[in-house]
Design a protein around this nucleic acid. Sequence first.
DNA 1: AATGCAATTGCAAATCGTTTGCAATTAGAG
DNA 2: CTCTAATTGCAAACGATTTGCAATTGCATT
Lengths: 149, 149
Amino acid sequence: MNEPHPTRPDYEAELRKTGVRITRPRKVILSILSDAGDHPDALEIFKRAVEIDSGISLSTVYRTMKLLEEIGAIHRHAFEGGPSRFEPAGEEHHDHLIDIETGDVIEFHSARIEELQEEIARELGYDIVRHRLELYGRKRRAGRSARGG
Amino acid sequence: MNEPHPTRPDYEAELRKTGVRITRPRKVILSILSDAGDHPDALEIFKRAVEIDSGISLSTVYRTMKLLEEIGAIHRHAFEGGPSRFEPAGEEHHDHLIDIETGDVIEFHSARIEELQEEIARELGYDIVRHRLELYGRKRRAGRSARGG
DNA sequence: AATGCAATTGCAAATCGTTTGCAATTAGAG
DNA sequence: CTCTAATTGCAAACGATTTGCAATTGCATT
């Protein structure tokens, strides 16, 4: 068995805390998010949800994602091109490397880069509110030396 | 007055080079881009264009931006929230700090960050094809040390 | 367990930024 | 100046997301 995330988020608790109803559609969506190891978009979440309860609508998925984002339970990422993709907010801060061939997302973190960002902003007279660092790349061809091909 | 860009791009030449027609609408749009010191979006370019030639359509602006992007004459940036914004491709590579209050864009560059990005990607087994580093912040309240000017 | 009502839903229509099909116009080679 | 393919404006189509609305439902209350 593989743990999708180090910190399994208890979304229902988070929702209750904000005085929001735990409805059937929300339960389904929340369960999907809980064990999503990837970074699905709204449509993908919708598809997974329909398999569990065919009555769920795409609007509800969008509404739920917005709700979860507002209470800070998930993060929304608008990677180049595609629709927004989501991930639980539990983990600690990280940036993303997107495989431009597969769409796979790899998380990474660099304290040094963060420091440099702060430094740059400071020098420009700004306070960073949030930032976005995305690397778009492709898997390096293993084996022979660096060659085009 | 003020030089919008260190390197004033000769868009018409670039277009001619790719065997594309220099039409009236294109001339207008190109002239706007040439002395745009900011990072306007398509609608903004359209508005400026209409002041010069009221016959220009928004579709043509979009088509021209796409064309210029394809030949590598401009860069498109999809900053959080808003529509794509454009800038001449002439300058050397840089990233962006976006003032979340005004929408102003400040350009910066950090060789060190670039290096670190490469290093990270390499360690993850990837080659970076492109990347995106955006800082979203607000002007620091002029406390004591730094003074805005 | 039944009640009541605001929160939530599904649906369809609306929205926003952008692209596209098409018939009319036009740049620019000959 | 002629010719034709490239380009245009327009409106309609687009994909992702949001919204109005009437019907439904969670859940605090009896």
